[in-house]
Design a protein around this nucleic acid. Sequence first.
DNA 1: AATCAATAGCCTTAAAATAGTCCATTGAAT
DNA 2: ATTCAATGGACTATTTTAAGGCTATTGATT
Lengths: 103, 103
Amino acid sequence: MQNTKTPEELEAAFGQQLRDLRLRRNIDQRQLAEQAGVALNAVKNLENGRGATLTSLVKVLRALGRADWLETLAPAVAISPMQMLKAKQLRQRASKAKGNANA
Amino acid sequence: MQNTKTPEELEAAFGQQLRDLRLRRNIDQRQLAEQAGVALNAVKNLENGRGATLTSLVKVLRALGRADWLETLAPAVAISPMQMLKAKQLRQRASKAKGNANA
DNA sequence: AATCAATAGCCTTAAAATAGTCCATTGAAT
DNA sequence: ATTCAATGGACTATTTTAAGGCTATTGATT
């Protein structure tokens, strides 16, 4: 089941979550910006889904105490000890063009 | 327990996770960029932690089928049905400067 | 060990975000 | 109902990123 939202919608919904985190801590945008080391405008851009840099986002997450969330994107796959033994490490490059899982 | 990593380190570690997701699907950067609708350079920037826009990130996550991850930042707090009744909705603004939870 | 596609890195131009400031609107507290 | 800080929106200058193209390096395959 795919996410049908457009990138714009995703960014806006994401901004709302950032806002929620901030408001749960009851700090204003100015304070958050200061603690994060970014401009007030950068926080506004993030929360309103108006476009932002990844750097601004990371700094703000850090200030909100949620930098750990950034580590949850690609969790290591859980494998059994037996599988562990013969598990090959992840490839460093995609395989050459013909045998790919492409569309 | 705080995350002690610098923003640069966080961004680099995050980029590695993006790369892992891509490699698990065995597609190359060019294909991912094409499917995401961004430039090849944007994918490189993301994976190498060299700076990127939130828009590029969102498009790439979407192409990787992981846009749902964006919804996991601020999960709704679980409360009991009894609490539900008297639960006030989250404030829309931080409270005025004196009584804040500031540093 | 030879091959060659995947990736890194650099360049230029265009587009977008940051930073700083100001003013208008509005939610929450009195 | 009034007040006023929190927020939104707009503007300019500066910095950063996107896009597109090119070359050098290197990991995976044979």
